[in-house]
């Protein structure tokens, strides 16, 4: 499902370069310790997550190393 990021993460992502026109590929660390690699963020504010993870908080976001 499509998830809207908190302002804190938006503020960080807009400081980082895009991976292509209008999107960034990122790695996520979730509050429960799980990690997700190569997730796409649109316009530094929306990302697609599996439904079961969408309500788990985000602990860290970094650009995915291509």
């Amino acid at each position: 499902m499509r998830v809207k990021l908190d302002k804190k993460w938006i503020a960080r992502l807009v400081q980082l370069p895009e991976s292509g026109m209008g999107y960034q590929r990122v790695d996520l660390r979730l509050q429960d310790g799980r990690e997700l690699k190569d997730v796409t963020v649109f316009n530094a504010e929306e990302l697609d997550l599996p439904d079961d993870l969408a309500r788990v908080g985000i602990k860290d976001i970094r650009l995915h190393a291509a």
């Binding site: 400081q15 370069p17 026109m21």
Partner: peptide, 22 residues
């Protein structure tokens, strides 16, 4: 630049592009 978003966050209010924008 093409975007699905009218409020494109890569474009600053002063009309500049952020570094690394495509």
């Amino acid at each position: 630049r093409f975007s699905a978003f009218a409020n494109d966050r890569r474009i600053l209010p002063d009309g500049s592009l952020r570094p690394g924008t495509y």
